[in-house]
Design a protein around this nucleic acid. Sequence first.
DNA 1: TCTCATGTTTAGGT
DNA 2: GACCTAAACATGAG
Length: 245
Amino acid sequence: MPEGPSIVILREEVAALRLNGKEILHVEGNSKIDKDRLIHQQVIDFKSWGKHFLVCFENFTLRIHFMLFGLYKIDGRKDTPARLSLQFANAELNFYSCSVKIFDQPAYELYDWSGDIMSDDWNAEKALKKLKDTPKMLACDALLNQDIFAGSGNIIKNEVLFRTRIHPLSQIGKLPQEKLVEIVKETRNYSFDFLTWKLEFTLKKHWLAHTKKMCPRCRIPFIKEYLGKTKRRSYFCTNCQVLYF
DNA sequence: TCTCATGTTTAGGT
DNA sequence: GACCTAAACATGAG
């Protein structure tokens, strides 16, 4: 569930419930957070930043991060206990297997939306500058770096590197300016394709590289390797993806 | 039944 | 401090 576009879908599903300004009537769950802090509080807004789902209150913010296995149910439950359940008069939000944390500041003090690939405030120039400031970073690490591309994950990484024909082990500092511009532009662009396809339940069908055995351009086998600082799955074509090194 | 994976933090070592 | 590794968390698809 976790990449940025999926969190946007959650945010929009919750927005449709019109819970802004509504009071939380009951809180449950096996989360260790102070649940009394939430009860009878009025939710100001629901936001997302990268892979974070944010429940905003006047003076504090509840952050939900779904990690690898996180799930949610809106007006429904799983058989297993919820990590956190927020119950309103006419709706219920249930979160499972996720990381939950309360921050003692309003969301606008905690987050800079110019770094969120899905945000209206996304700033491509700032992302470009961040890339230029980290010349030793590998392309595969840059696309998982939440300080540069908040919301990008392993699927987006593999698809963007394939679309831009960049080998995952390329060094950011060795890429020509126009390729850096292309990475920034395509990360944003693919993320919105991801959103569209996820809503259509056709995301997997549209993968060109991620989990694929063969390059759709060259018809030669993809390489599958665990690359970068975090050793995440990378699928790439040694023929059409150029190694800048 | 078993392996693996859309992720991140933290603790420990060198 | 920089850099690396492993562990921890925990669900479901194939």
